[in-house]
């Protein structure tokens, strides 16, 4: 009974307080601008408890934008390893999902899921801030199950 209650409280707190970390693994900057847009007071994602954190150690959700270049693959892996479990990855933009327009380029490995496990994909070139917020909220609502 108490264990059950504890588990419920923990799940609730995870849904209510996702702290995000933004990482650019080789994007053309379009997705980054939209991501930063979503963090502005206009969209006010602090309503959902989202805070932007600088250090991977504090973050729960890693927002990755752009196709992964060969140079960035090692760094992306390291940033992912530095995060404390439980952790989630959201791939933002067509490039991060599959490679997008950069697919097959000589310096590009492909989508983010080639390097690290991805929990949610948000397509679009670039996706709107609303889509981004919707994606993160949907990802968290799957935690309930």
């Amino acid at each position: 009974m108490i264990k059950n209650l504890k588990e419920k409280a923990v799940t609730w707190s995870r849904i209510k307080s996702p702290w995000v970390l933004h990482y650019n693994s080789g994007s053309c900057n379009g997705c980054d601008i939209e991501t930063l847009d979503a963090l502005t007071p206009r969209f006010d994602i602090e309503r959902f408890g989202v805070l932007l954190k600088g250090s991977p150690r504090h973050a729960d959700v890693l927002l990755v934008t752009g196709a992964v270049t060969k140079q960035q693959a090692k760094r992306l892996r390291r940033v992912y390893d530095q995060m404390a479990a439980p952790k989630f990855v959201v791939a933002i933009g067509a490039c991060a999902c599959s490679g997008g327009v950069m697919y097959g380029c000589y310096g590009v490995l492909g989508g983010v899921d080639k390097i690290i496990p991805v929990s949610a994909y948000i397509p679009g070139c670039p996706p709107r801030p609303e889509a981004l917020i919707d994606g993160v909220v949907k990802l968290l609502s799957t935690l309930k199950k």
Binding site: S13, K16, S17, P41, D44, E46, G49, D60
Partner: peptide, 15 residues
């Protein structure tokens, strides 16, 4: 803007 709900700091700490 609207700001976080009242339980926000507690949710952060539990998490």
């Amino acid at each position: 803007r609207q700001g976080p709900p009242w339980y926000q700091p507690f949710a952060d700490i539990i998490k």
